[in-house]
């Protein structure tokens, strides 16, 4: 029973399930903007029910074996295929080396959703409050894109162009996300402020490289604060230039809370978000520097 309401039904489309990457790319090339790819389908089917999307062709990637693999190579990093689910990734041992990503993927939505939802899908939705982009940006991750014309790589930071807007042309497919090997003496974490399985009001990923008692390098990236993930450059500089970094954490949190773009919406006011940014910055830095 579906009551004929858009909330309960999907618009009509033709379902395709290619068995090779070549076949998938040919379908994408043939149907162009008429097509959407599906991995876990969690986001796509929700968008389609609400009629925010109505592709004539849905291309299910789960029949393509090479897209279903997460592969870690020492010294090179971690490559996560387009159909690897969040639960599969969470269980993959080497993920622990990538602290911020490990934190983020284990706490998205709920465990049943994570049986279907994928990392690449979570990223490609580019909804401002999803969790994996801040973690991926802090870790310097890149998106691997293929089409019949060739392949290219784009840093995650540039891949997300706006809310629900990504750097992807018709005919192109995100085949994987690549996270480089963490630098020596580095440590990263991701934390978010939310209730239950709700979306984050503010999230932050931090990746630091320690050098004795000083911070040689740090990346601070905020999610859910504005239309795209925000990188706090001034706050990072303040931490790097401090001779005794532990003594300036309050100041770093304050700079970050003033520096990044933050908006008011139904979930939280700008003022509240800036307060949360200050508090979460302090917390995440204590974790990664400790």
């Amino acid at each position: 029973m579906s009551f004929g309401s858009p909330w309960f039904t999907l618009p009509e489309f033709t379902y395709h399930k290619p068995k090779t990457l070549k076949e998938a790319l040919e379908l994408l090339d043939k149907y162009g903007e008429e097509a959407k790819v599906m991995a876990g389908g969690v986001g796509l089917l929700a968008f389609m029910k609400e009629r925010l999307m109505a592709p004539s062709h849905v291309i299910d990637l789960k029949g393509v074996p090479e897209l279903g693999q997460a592969i870690y190579k020492e010294g090179e990093g971690l490559t996560i295929g387009a159909t690897v689910t969040l639960n599969e990734l969470a269980r993959y041992g080497p993920l622990k080396k990538f602290g911020a990503l490990h934190d983020a993927v284990r706490d998205i939505a709920d465990p049943i959703i994570r049986n279907r939802a994928t990392l690449v899908g979570n990223l490609c939705e580019a909804i401002p409050w999803v969790d994996t982009p801040p973690a991926l940006i802090a870790l310097g991750a890149e998106v691997e894109i293929r089409s019949l014309k060739g392949e290219r790589r784009v840093p995650v930071k540039d891949f997300i162009k706006g809310p629900v807007e990504i750097d992807l042309e018709p005919g192109e497919l995100v085949t994987a996300v690549h996270v480089p090997e963490p630098r020596r003496n580095s440590r990263s974490r991701f934390i978010k402020y939310n209730t239950g399985s709700e979306f984050a009001l503010v999230s932050v990923a931090a990746n630091v490289v320690m050098d004795g008692g000083r911070v040689r390098d740090v990346s601070l990236v905020y999610g859910a604060v504005s239309s795209t993930p925000q990188v706090a450059v001034k706050a990072a500089d303040a931490l790097k230039s401090a001779e005794k970094p532990w003594e300036v954490l309050d100041e770093v949190g304050r700079i970050a809370s003033e520096e990044v773009e933050a908006v008011s919406d139904v979930l939280a006011s700008e003022e509240y978000r800036r307060h949360l940014i200050r508090v979460l910055t302090l917390r995440v830095l204590r974790e990664v520097m400790g």
Partner: peptide
């Protein structure tokens, strides 16, 4: 609408029947 599909819990409103 949760069911076990191939021994994995899924919400069946987020799965296409053809899949």
């Amino acid at each position: 609408c949760t069911v076990l599909m191939n021994d994995r819990l899924v919400k069946s409103c987020l799965v296409l029947a053809v899949e």
